[in-house]
Nucleic acid binder design. Structure first.
Lengths: 201, 201
DNA sequence: AACTTATTGTACTGTTCGGTACAGTACATA
DNA sequence: TATGTACTGTACCGAACAGTACAATAAGTT
């Protein structure tokens, strides 16, 4: 494969990503994609087979980017609550970002036709946050800083509290919360979470 | 308006509801609706104007039904935790029912074109639960059975915990939880909630 | 340069589907 | 039984759009 081919391929994906996330998947026509990135429809079919092939690539790359959003510091000096607050903030912010909201919407719609898409998206996107949070909580519990005996369940609790405030509303198109609101909401949810953890499961 | 007209109208709505919730809104054609309930396309346009007019009616009636799902007993003898457990169970069950999931999906997709649809659906559907829970919590707090000073926020917390386990996954098409799982999940969430309430906001 | 392979642009196909036109039929009311 | 209104069935229109055919052209390779 020529290097120019790879560049072109990436251009198509970028254009498609932009359009899918702005207008939605069924609303975006192949001609629009081409108009944006140049080239010919024929090329598009050569690279991706069909329209859904493009979508798969868009979701793949989109979720890939998400993974780099957050990592817990392995710094045992930083206070637990501070780390959780930071995590909560980034979680809400990411989940309510136009990009992830649109990906969610597309997956919700298209998963009917392609159930694998849903699992793929979930495990790479939202569940990624669950995994790293679980790992962190487990580690904190082992160090005696946190009183939980089922880390995955505890992670679900915290994520639920964090999602609770805005996610459902944002998904149906209500305006996203401001930075300040996200910060405040994350802090309150974390506080509530830690209080809830004070008794055994 | 003749009585037969009302019956016919209702038949169309029922057929549309069934098809929309089974296949989705864009996937359902007007001809399919007619095939199911008899009559003519012309009648359909006479009653509802266009396809979106049918959808509005479907959402209206669908949310209306939901309101009758749950009411707190005004029985101060029944234990708080028992009432919350029952509420939690019905909340998860309703939210993860095929009917409400499909309504959610449709609203998520269509709200782009019709933002009012989202607000309409939210306030009649999901936020209805928030309202009655808030009212109940307020009442319990006044009776000194619960230590909260911001009932709406507390309601958001509990609903977040309840949603947390299954909602996001169910929305993208993963299999719905069993009765048992819902029961267990509701109980655990309620317990966590009450623990979290033990400190002031 | 000669040759091969990848790419482009344009035009086209086939189909789906919301919406309309219209002629004919049931139905209610008087 | 006469008359106007509501309904039905069928056929059609027009637009949108995924996907294809193909001839012309650019880009690599030797």
């Amino acid at each position: 494969m020529r290097p120019s081919t790879l560049i072109k391929r990436q251009k198509i994906i970028s254009a498609a990503t932009q359009l899918f996330f702005k207008q939605g998947y069924p609303e975006t026509t192949l001609d629009q994609i081409i108009e944006q990135c140049g080239g010919s429809k024929q090329t598009l079919y050569r690279y991706f087979g069909d329209k859904k092939g493009i979508l798969n690539e868009v979701i793949t790359q989109g979720t890939e980017e998400m993974k780099s959003v957050f990592q817990f510091e392995n710094d045992s000096d930083t206070a637990l609550i501070k780390q959780l607050n930071e995590f909560g903030y980034l979680y809400i912010k990411t989940l309510c970002s136009p990009q992830l909201l649109n990906m969610h919407r597309i997956v919700i719609t298209e998963s009917r036709r392609d159930p694998e898409l849903a699992e793929f998206f979930l495990s790479r996107g939202p569940q990624h946050f669950h995994r790293i949070l679980t790992e962190f909580l487990l580690q904190q519990a082992e160090q005696g800083k946190l009183n939980i005996n089922k880390a995955p369940l505890a992670a679900t609790r915290l994520l639920g509290l964090l999602k609770g405030d805005f996610f459902q509303e944002a998904l149906v198109g209500l305006p996203c919360p401001s930075e300040q609101e996200i910060h405040k909401s994350a802090q309150q949810a974390v506080k509530f979470f830690l209080q809830g953890c004070s008794a055994p499961d």
